[in-house]
Design a binder for these strands. Structure first.
Lengths: 209, 209
DNA sequence: GTCTATAAGGAGATAGAC
DNA sequence: GTCTATCTCCTTATAGAC
């Protein structure tokens, strides 16, 4: 194996670990399985990382840093706010269906982080980043359609993530595409009620309470 | 240790395993940890079960069979349909806050089942049972308040479980009670729109689409 | 039926040659 | 820097005494 900077090696090992985890779960991501996937020797692992724990910390930090919701790229152009939300959620569902392993890894890593002393903060940060990404999407959609949100956008993002996490778990358990889409239709409808047409007075919208 | 029927021993070992998992996660539920928790010898484990895998199958089947949502017992008596839904969800949130380990175990076991060949069906069944329990609650609440549901109750139950799973995950990651309650307020509001006052004609209600 | 003792293998981590 | 070989510990599972 050619020489490689320690940083590159760390990144490569993290990627290999993610592939192993996606294929077989967190429990199967032993140092041996990881180096086999990366095509390295076992000693190289401990040359790059002092311990498996350190690698897992870096892996989760990497995921939290880089894995923002990919669906954020694809704001559908036309339509009203309801259909934009619906289409964005459908796009996310498609990602899930096309690559169930990926989303399951996110869930498993989140549980791992919550369980592991010293890593709890990473789980919190992971969700903050989800909400931040969704918030951007919500603001973009509002601008596009000329509405304003009747609630802090971050609060709405929390509801969106509640929906996406919820139907993702259900889908992972029963793989029922149609049922997930029905939930999405309901979700988009309920969320669009939080949008106020900018030309309306604010109390013409339906407040939540 | 007194003699004990093999069935009793199996049940006791499953309970011990659940305690270990709640405290330290699925990965920490080794046969040794389990028998230590149960106060048995290692050999007793393999007298009761042929393998750890068999125990895990029985454990998940046990959980799926017995762990229906405890909040179902506590339908709040007074109020309209919206406040009943809200109070029931608050009751569930209280369960979560009082015993986070329990709900986390449910999530982890679900992921374990989805990952393990031969156990996928148990994950599906777990969610079906959740929905069945919630469906009962929804029908009870509808009867109590004299409304009918404008959608199949099982579909509404799916949305309810989407909400509860979603805000449970978020709460596990950030422990933000107030944020969870705000989601619950929104959820109850959105769900109550699916209720049609029995004296109204059905099209006076707001359909989802 | 229940125990102690142990087999057999996989895990993380390290020593030391090159 | 990277490798092979190995250490030590912990895992599931079993053998065999009582």
């Amino acid at each position: 194996m050619a020489r490689m900077s320690s940083t590159d090696r760390r990144v490569e090992l993290v990627h290999a670990a993610l592939r192993v985890i996606a294929a077989k779960g967190v429990a199967a991501a032993t140092t041996r399985a990881i180096v086999a996937e990366a095509g390295m020797s076992l000693a190289s692992f401990h040359y790059a990382f002092t311990s498996r724990d350190e690698m897992m910390r870096e892996l989760i930090a990497y995921v939290v840093e880089n894995e923002t919701v990919a669906a954020v790229d694809s704001i559908p152009a036309g339509g009203d706010i309801r259909s934009i939300i619906e289409e964005a959620m459908r796009a996310y569902l498609k990602l899930l269906i096309d690559n169930p392993g990926h989303e399951q890894v996110m869930f498993e890593l989140m549980h791992y982080a919550v369980r592991t002393p010293g890593l709890e903060a990473l789980a919190t940060e992971q969700y903050e980043r989800y909400r931040a990404a969704v918030s951007e999407l919500l603001e973009g959609a509002a601008t596009l359609t000329g509405v304003t949100w009747s609630m802090p956008v971050n609060e709405i993002a929390r509801i969106v993530v509640t929906y996406t996490d919820g139907f993702s778990l259900a889908w992972l358990s029963d793989r029922d595409d149609a049922a997930a889409e029905r939930v999405i239709v309901f979700a988009a409808e309920s969320l669009s009620r939080l949008a106020v047409s900018a030309t309306q007075t604010s109390d013409s919208a339906t407040p939540v309470r």
